[in-house]
Design a protein around this nucleic acid. Sequence first.
DNA 1: TAAAAATACTCCATAGGTATTTTAT
DNA 2: ATAAAATACCTATGGAGTATTTTTA
Lengths: 301, 301
Amino acid sequence: MNLRDIEYFVAVAKSGHFRIAAEECYVSQPTLSGQIKKLEEELGSSLFERNTRSVILTAFGEEALPIAKKILANVQELQSCAESLKDPYQGILKIGIFPTLGPWLFPRLSEPITEEFPHVQVHLLEEQSNYLIQKLQNGELDIAFLALPQDIPGMKEIPLFSESFWAAFPEKHSWSQKEEIYPDDLNGENMLLLNDGHCFRDQAIEICYRYGAEERKQFRATGIETLRQMVRMGSGITLIPRMAIPDFPEKGIRYKEVSGADFKRNIGLFYRTTHPKSLLIEDLAKLIKGICGIELPVKSI
Amino acid sequence: MNLRDIEYFVAVAKSGHFRIAAEECYVSQPTLSGQIKKLEEELGSSLFERNTRSVILTAFGEEALPIAKKILANVQELQSCAESLKDPYQGILKIGIFPTLGPWLFPRLSEPITEEFPHVQVHLLEEQSNYLIQKLQNGELDIAFLALPQDIPGMKEIPLFSESFWAAFPEKHSWSQKEEIYPDDLNGENMLLLNDGHCFRDQAIEICYRYGAEERKQFRATGIETLRQMVRMGSGITLIPRMAIPDFPEKGIRYKEVSGADFKRNIGLFYRTTHPKSLLIEDLAKLIKGICGIELPVKSI
DNA sequence: TAAAAATACTCCATAGGTATTTTAT
DNA sequence: ATAAAATACCTATGGAGTATTTTTA
């Protein structure tokens, strides 16, 4: 069966004339007659009673007509749906981000994004990176922020920006007295770290290993805020991503850049190479780079 | 767009594999790939994101899938509807009959019809012949009982039976004394007749004209029962179709066949030559002939 | 006789096939 | 290297055309 045949059927039913219906369908009368006949044979029942004077619907035709119209309406719906989704700068964009970045990055992005792409609705998901990758691969997410490097087959990677890690320590800690902190000062320190699964934990461990610091084993924090509270209560020192550091003095805790160190994470945007909205995503990446490209120039807070 | 393409789309969406979907659709993988591509181009949006590892629906594909399924379900409905209506000995049969025959003919037919054609539902319409013809022509009726002769283009005619007209007169009328009534006895009589529009009126008028009877102008009856009551009340004499005469004596009124007369009407069944259930209708006509073919042999009541 | 649908036939677009290439993991 | 989809190219079905016939009011 063919959709065009169904159009022919509806046209004949509407006009009650093969010739007129043929004109309306922009085909010749024999073509239309032939297709109607084929359709009737295919269905096994005739749709019309016809002679040279009149064309009237059979009982079956009468029942078939509303169904046929429904089919055509659904096809119409499909087409207009396609039409409205054609524009890549429009529709829902499902963005994933990991929990040690999301709460500080997103507040800075939401305004500019809605301004630049007013017809895009952002749906945000905050989960640990491995889940983000999964959902990116199976299509539950359109794009995800991930810490570099990543080697995910089928994904396009757009490096966005670097973010340094600062030392965070209690006000009472001896480091408060120091003019400068150097990487080697980490040697022998006990560092508070996050739970497993956080990419930030892995990055911090890498630094500990490099400079001879130990993980403080009694507790692992579930997130940056917990970490921060633990430091404030004097449980130890840690590293904090630059964005998570407030731009005003905080009671009980001090933050300081580590002089000469290259403590940082690189953040990139990932999307499936096959994604139909790559245009939008690339533009979005440019926007984000413009906002987060230059790091804040302060040395300590 | 093509219904088969939509089937392909749904199949790929279901299995998430072009090759497997192709197998399920009994076509080759390149054919299916080509048709999907064509469909996507036609709609202007891609339905799938695909690479060699995975096939996932785009946002548009996600929206299109339920619509596509709806279309296929409707096509299914159309086909099963055709299937169930294929049998001509099944379904609704709209039968028209005129009011001076229906009330006496139908009670005799309904039982045998439902017995012989248990899957046929009879919808009955009782109207004057000209309306019946109209509705027969425009398809509102499947068949109609009409008095012969009729020349209706496009209609098949099946003669069914003849029905005689008997004289009906008040008990007090002089005819009650007569052994026999002859056609010439009508000469000079005033006859009660039906309203315009009844075919039975035309037949009665024809007989009046032939034998010198006059129409009694003061009243015209709206139906056989009115006519009967008028006769009973002594308003005059009339003719009554044989079937409308009760098989028991009635107070105040007498019925008598007119000896040697050929007062009768011929009843036939009509249907459009193009009607798809001609098989059923012809069988139905045979059944009716079997029931009404032989006239009742009584001479007077 | 005239108007409408049906038939006969011809042509070409395209759905479908096979063989092969490309792509991405 | 392998598995999957895409491409290239050929074939054949069938949709569409024109000319003509049939039908029936």
